[in-house]
Write a protein that binds this DNA or RNA. Structure first.
Lengths: 111, 111
DNA sequence: TTGACATGTGACCATTCGGTCACCTATTCT
DNA sequence: AGAATAGGTGACCGAATGGTCACATGTCAA
């Protein structure tokens, strides 16, 4: 499985996005601390953190028996660079014009 | 289900990302044209296009019995703005420093 | 050194998801 | 009108995913 696939799959789950949000509010939290915030058992939180770590969205550091979790925004930046670069290199402007045109012609007919 | 959840779930599948890539190469393709490029039955492609359309990543326009599919980069831009804004507003620099520090201290110990 | 605490593993179950198919409707062309 | 073409629906199945638990390891502190 490719790296970006891991990142996209990790971001696909709302609980994992909530974990990233929690780490953004207060970075370096332990598993037990994150569990207390999320209405889920420790095991569920642990699985999610594992996927986030595999995707490189979370970096960890051990401190004794604790494991501290830190946000890593780099993969998100890389995704952005991939998609937005593709869509903007000579195409995004035309597409945005097209979208506006579609919405003007057929206001509510596109689902 | 929230809008951004639809977008993240739509982006989570490699076939759907490939569809976006195909539409980027040539925009406005029909279902049948996309099917021919993707080693999958028409029904599988149709399901994926449906999810992309529900997420707002693809916009469609009918022309007779054909349905033309167009890329819409706006949701991807919105995701970028959400995450990167959060991570950069006073935090990203510190996090990147931290990451560099972690990788210097413990080169291969974080999985 | 004993007990409490923080994290980890493997199995397990219910639900979701990817993909296919039989069958159907709508449009075009002759 | 009738045949061919483009797209759509609902059911179905195997695989992957989310979540929980019993149990185990490693660490701190009295």
């Amino acid at each position: 499985m490719s790296d970006d696939d891991l990142v996209f799959k990790a971001l696909a789950d709302p609980t994992r996005r909530a974990l990233l949000d929690r780490l953004f509010v207060r970075d370096g939290q332990t598993l037990t601390e994150l569990e207390a915030e999320l209405a889920m058992t420790r095991f569920g939180v642990m699985k999610h953190l594992r996927l986030l770590e595999d995707a490189g969205l979370v970096v960890t550091r051990r401190r004794g028996r604790e494991k501290l979790h830190f946000l890593n925004p780099v993969p998100i930046r890389l995704i952005h660079d991939r998609w937005i670069d593709k869509y903007t290199e000579g195409h995004a402007a035309a597409l945005l014009d097209l979208k506006a045109e579609l919405e003007r012609d057929e206001p509510e007919e596109n689902r």
